[in-house]
Computed example of a mutant assay.
Amino acid sequence: MPLLMFIIFSVKNKLQQGSWQAVCDADLLPFVLQEKQSTQSRVPLYTTSIAAILAIIAMAGPTWQRIPTPVFRNAAALVIVLDLSRSMDASDIKPSRLARARYKIADLLKQRKDGQTALVVYAASAFTVTPLTDDTETINSQLSALNSNIMPAQGSNSALALQHAVQLFKNTGLQKGQILLITDDDKIQQAIDKADLPSAFQLSILGVGTADGAPIKLAQGDFLKDASGNIVLAKLNSHALRKAAQESGGIYQKITDTDADIDRLSHYFDQSAKHAEAVNHDLLLENWVEAGVWLLLPILLLSAFSFRRGLFS
Rank of each mutant, 00 (worst) to 15 (best):
94 K>S: 11
112 R>W: 03
123 A>C: 01
137 E>T: 12
31 F>K: 08
153 A>M: 14
169 F>R: 02
199 S>W: 02
132 L>D: 06
163 Q>K: 12
100 R>H: 11
148 S>L: 10
121 V>L: 11
293 V>F: 08
121 V>W: 11
98 L>D: 04
217 K>F: 06
284 L>W: 01
248 S>A: 15
133 T>M: 09
285 L>M: 10
67 I>C: 00
216 I>R: 01
140 N>G: 05
183 T>I: 11
252 Y>N: 09
49 S>H: 05
17 Q>P: 04
138 T>K: 02
2 P>D: 11
174 L>E: 10
223 F>I: 02
239 H>I: 14
173 G>R: 11
24 C>M: 11
39 T>A: 10
185 D>I: 13
79 V>N: 01
312 F>R: 00
145 A>N: 13
150 I>H: 12
277 E>R: 11
15 L>P: 00
264 R>Q: 15
255 I>Y: 02
78 L>K: 03
276 A>R: 15
268 Y>K: 13
269 F>N: 12
23 V>I: 14
148 S>W: 12
133 T>N: 07
178 Q>T: 13
119 L>S: 04
61 G>P: 07
259 D>Q: 08
289 V>D: 10
293 V>P: 05
59 M>Y: 11
248 S>W: 08
234 A>F: 06
17 Q>R: 10
256 T>Q: 10
274 K>L: 15
233 L>V: 10
69 T>K: 08
293 V>Q: 14
280 N>G: 08
200 A>L: 12
40 Q>E: 02
181 L>V: 07
150 I>R: 00
113 K>A: 13
86 R>K: 09
262 I>A: 05
45 L>P: 03
31 F>T: 04
152 P>R: 10
221 G>Y: 01
137 E>F: 07
30 P>H: 03
31 F>D: 06
186 D>H: 14
223 F>T: 07
32 V>R: 07
1 M>K: 10
129 V>G: 06
175 Q>T: 12
69 T>W: 07
85 S>G: 06
149 N>R: 15
25 D>K: 10
33 L>G: 07
252 Y>E: 02
262 I>K: 04
47 T>F: 07
239 H>G: 09
277 E>F: 06
268 Y>W: 15
119 L>T: 08
159 A>L: 02
85 S>Q: 01
118 A>I: 04
218 L>S: 07
278 A>F: 03
46 Y>K: 10
181 L>M: 14
281 H>W: 13
152 P>T: 08
